[in-house]
Design a protein around this nucleic acid. Sequence first.
DNA 1: ACGGAATGTACGGTGTACTTGACATAGCCG
DNA 2: CGGCTATGTCAAGTACACCGTACATTCCGT
Lengths: 71, 71
Amino acid sequence: MSQTPIVNQIRKLRFEHGEMTQEALAKATGVTRQTIIALEAGRYAPSLELAFRIARSFRLRVEDVFQWPDS
Amino acid sequence: MSQTPIVNQIRKLRFEHGEMTQEALAKATGVTRQTIIALEAGRYAPSLELAFRIARSFRLRVEDVFQWPDS
DNA sequence: ACGGAATGTACGGTGTACTTGACATAGCCG
DNA sequence: CGGCTATGTCAAGTACACCGTACATTCCGT
């Protein structure tokens, strides 16, 4: 579709959740560490399924973790 | 990632929004009619960006349109 | 009975999300 | 100093989201 205008708060949320490590989040969401690194770096947006899993890991809603320009 | 356990309410919402046509939703969200058909048929889950666009078209939040087993 | 609108299927093709694996660096602790 | 943890990079491969085009079907209005 396009060049990832979607922003996320993953890195910030990781620290707010007890110094959670990238590896820990990766395992909790069932993806590799590479994927978490890429997402935090904003290299691409996650699939909807992964977005759900990440949000659930933080006990938040999708839109609390990911934001999209428009509103 | 996996075999699309994500469910959506697109078809239902289309009708609740003034008999909105698949083509109309496609144009409103910037994708083709094929994509809307595939999503309604549950053939695959949309990208996070498209999920946002669809939700916004209905003036709803992502999780009001798409659901994922887990809760 | 014909025409158009709405929905659906079936191709092949492209871009990208995600993977595995290997290696680099910085910080901390013994 | 030597080793471990956390973070990051690079590269090649797989899976699938989305595209374009073309064609079939059903329904409705005229």
